[in-house]
Each structure stands twice: as structure tokens, then as C-alpha cells.
Design a protein around this nucleic acid. Sequence first.
DNA 1: AAGTGAACCTGAAGGC
DNA 2: TGCCTTCAGGTTCACT
Length: 295
Amino acid sequence: MPELPEVETVRRGLAPVLEGARIDRVMLGRPDLRFPLPDRFAERLEGRRVSGLSRRAKYLIAHLDDGVSLIAHLGMTGSFRIDHEAIAASAFAHPRGKDSAHDHVRIGVTRRDDMPAIVTYNDPRRFGFMDLVATAALADSHHLAGLGIEPTGNALDGATLQALLAGRKAPLKAALLDQGLIAGLGNIYVCEALSRAGLSPLRRAGTLARRGAKAKAEAGRLADAIRAVIAEAIDAGGSSLRDYVHTDGSLGYFQHRFRVYDRAGAACPTPGCGGTIERIVQSGRSSFFCRRCQH
DNA sequence: AAGTGAACCTGAAGGC
DNA sequence: TGCCTTCAGGTTCACT
């Protein structure tokens, strides 16, 4: 579900509630998500204070006051919900509502301003996971160690992208989804960035790293497109498709700005192009693009 | 080593 | 209405 802009939106939604809050009580609906939760997961969180909430790629990280950090990944369908009312212990243990069956982790906190809140992690497909890692060893943890550069800020430019793609025979689509190269892109934003840059998802990635002005210009365009689409999506609060919602239940609205994603059969939005968006499958994932203006 | 495809799990949507 | 198939924002593992 969530790519970098959605995870960043979740982080911004949770930060006012969690930063400075004390964790009072943790309830698990089951002992595992995609992987087993760590031993004594609830006990290790209870009584701790959250000193900060950060993000790396698609990972959300809550830093605790005892030198441990809680790492969370939302998989395809994970979401956090915040309930601001104090609720009775019985309701805390047995939430109601239509898909409370997938409320797997409930965290009762006392906010910095002393107001109570409950943060609930819901994940129907359970592709998400949580782990506890020593904060000092975060960067070396197996979750984060292999990640590539963030597509935010100015770190990603044409020359950097050329260095990353040099020698790669995989299609551009697959290379951009590789979290070890650029960390945080997913299916939507890769399709959108390639459309904006006028580059085909079928193109061999290494061809953007050839010597010469043409490849240099293409790599520059792609780097710009990636940074722009990610920045715009964060500003829009992410994209809401099937089940992605903000922590307060509201929707992101970047999906209204999709040029190609999930738009097979539609007219290509590039002015004067006249092509049609098509859907193909690459390494098991849908790619949406216009053959006429993406080369 | 790099690249591809299957597996993990549930729900929504479309065809008949 | 119900049953069947296909597809979904991600990662990891097994294989070539």
C-alpha cells in the first residue's frame, strides 16, 4: 500500500500524538504480523516515552527513551488510526467496528499534554511488520542496512542516478523499484516518474548511464521527475486508493494527479501526444505507460 | 551477481 | 444471489 509519501504522511499524522507521549498499555490481537513480533513486545514498550518519530524509506521509526526503537513497515495494507477519547479497558481489549478483526496492535498512550489517545495498527493482509532494534544500531539493522538513497531533498541528481544505474541490464521499472538503489519508491511513483520523464519502463536501466549528452539529459530528467513527484505527493498527503487513509481517517488526494497509474485505455496526458496509456506486466507488477511518448 | 517469479494473506471487483 | 477468477500500494526467498 504505502510508498514513501504515504508513510511520511502517516509519520506527520502520528507525530503530534506520539512525540513526547508515554506508552501506558499495548495490546496484541495476535502474536505475529508478517513475522513474529519480538519477544515481550508489549512489555518492552509499556512505560517507555517516545522521544521522536522518524522515517527511512517506507519504514516508520519510533525512538524510545531507553535506547530502543520501534521499526514499523506497513506492507501493502497497513494503516494507523488515532482515537482521541479515553476508552474503558474492555473497549481497549475488544474494539468494535467493521474491520477491527484486523486491528493487530493497540497502543494506549498519555500524550505530552496529558490527553489520552489510542494508536491502532490495522493490516488486513498482514504484510506489514514491527520490530524492536537498539537505536544506536538502527542503520546496521537488517531492515535498514541495505537501503539506497532517499528520493527527497537534493541528494538524488542526474549524475548520482547514472552511477546507480550503470551496468544494469534490468528494465528501468525494476531498477527503480529496487530499494537498494533508491529507497522509498513503489509501483505508483515509479510509473508516474517515468511518465513525467518520457522514459519507457522497458528501457534497460544501464542505457541511462552511457557516456554522452543524451543519456546525461535523460538521467537528469528522471532524477528531477522522481524528486518532483515524491515532493508533490507528500504535499498532497499521499494517494488514497483502496485502503490507504490518514491517521484521522481522511484521504490523500494525489491519486487525482496520476498521469498513468491505473489509467489503462485513457488518453495520454502529454500535450499533443495523442497516445493511449497501456498496462503491461513486468516482474509480476503492472506497469502503466504511453508507448508513444515514453522511450 | 543479477535478474525473475513465486510466496506470503485478505478483500474487492468483475464475469457468468 | 453466489461462485469463480483476477488483481492490489511490498518484501523475501528460491531458483536460473
